[in-house]
Nucleic acid binder design. Structure first.
Lengths: 202, 202
DNA sequence: ACCTGAACACCGTTCAAGT
DNA sequence: ACCTGAACACCGTTCAAGT
């Protein structure tokens, strides 16, 4: 059992986050508890409350890490893709692959619900916003002088859509199987939506 | 405290489901517990286990009721709409309105995750399948002789997409506000996707 | 000063015992 | 036969007390 001053506040915090992530990766959100995290790092549960506000705070920190990794993956793709359409399709692929390769951490972002009335903190919303910014940027060359409002809307439609397909697929609620099918559905969504978005009918 | 033979098994079951739904509507999924349901109907918690397999079973029954109401709303719309495109747009509206008017029950369908390895029962999957069938039927007049496989795929893309927009909107993760915006996004998704789906580019 | 460990108010689930 | 109530193994959170 760890004793006083074995680790700094910051060290305990990092150890706890690492241990918690390991639990989530292996057992999913349901398997996570403050007591298990404490046990894994050799401290008692009370110690966690010196370092985190509460369990929601700890979860939010892990989700922030996950969002950062997803953002990095998207930003990388963005740099390599050729035209807007290719970028959009690649962004969709990156998202689906991310969710498929790390389903437990990805799911936790959406399974975790804040208590009634509580809002996501500003620094966290910022992480979501910058992902939409990437999608909007990829859309720009396809928007042909449309107002920014419409580009922002299209980004949210496509991203919400990709996300929804991914959710239903992971929850096995689409009557389909396999990642390839999910990739197919996502590509279909993006392709056909862009056809309408960039096409003559406006 | 209720005593023996005050109610039949079936009556206790109905009372429990009604009480549980009331809790969910008022407090959301998080507020639901076997002990609270038992208390609300004047029985001890042990009694619930004579009538339900476990708490997951009870939740699944409530979700089934919710799916039935959603299905009824969709089937009604289907009967009144004129052409395929109108039907699709109306189905989207019905879905968003349903989620908006009954967010706690709607959310519970997706917040509830089965234990690792457990599958949704066949009778439940059937309820999901028949909703997709409505969407596929509305798509038919727009599919112009395409193989059923493609129609099924398009139905899943659109429905997954509408769902995803709805999820992100309810979780306040889109940086938008209000039901009207969500309706706008949904209509944009359906319109533009259909433009690509029915358009020349295929 | 730092952390523990016990307490409090909750969970889901089971099952011997009471009526 | 039907239901209880207590037990078991868990939760998140707090805080007086120990080192």
């Amino acid at each position: 059992m760890a004793r006083r001053s074995d680790h700094s506040r910051e060290e305990i915090r990092e150890m706890a986050l690492d241990a918690a992530e390991k639990i989530v990766v292996e057992k999913g959100f349901e398997g996570l508890s403050a007591r298990k995290v404490a046990k894994a790092i050799g401290y008692t549960v009370g110690t966690l409350y010196l370092v985190f506000e509460n369990i929601d705070d700890l979860i939010l920190q892990i989700n922030a890490r996950t969002l950062d990794r997803l953002y990095a993956g998207m930003a990388e793709t963005q740099a390599t893709a050729r035209n807007g359409r290719q970028r959009m399709l690649q962004l969709g692929q990156v998202y689906i692959r991310f969710a498929d390769q790390d389903p437990h951490r990805w799911s936790m972002i959406f399974e975790h619900r804040l208590a009634e009335g509580r809002e996501l903190p500003e620094w966290y919303r910022e992480k979501i916003a910058r992902m939409f910014a990437i999608v909007e940027e990829a859309l720009m060359p396809l928007a042909a002088g449309r107002p920014g409002r419409e580009v922002a809307q299209a980004a949210r439609v496509i991203w919400g859509g990709v996300h929804g397909i991914c959710i239903l697929a992971v929850g096995n609620r689409l009557g389909i199987a396999g990642v390839d099918s999910v990739q197919d559905l996502t590509q279909s969504l993006i392709s056909n939506y862009l056809a309408g978005f960039t096409g003559p009918a406006g």
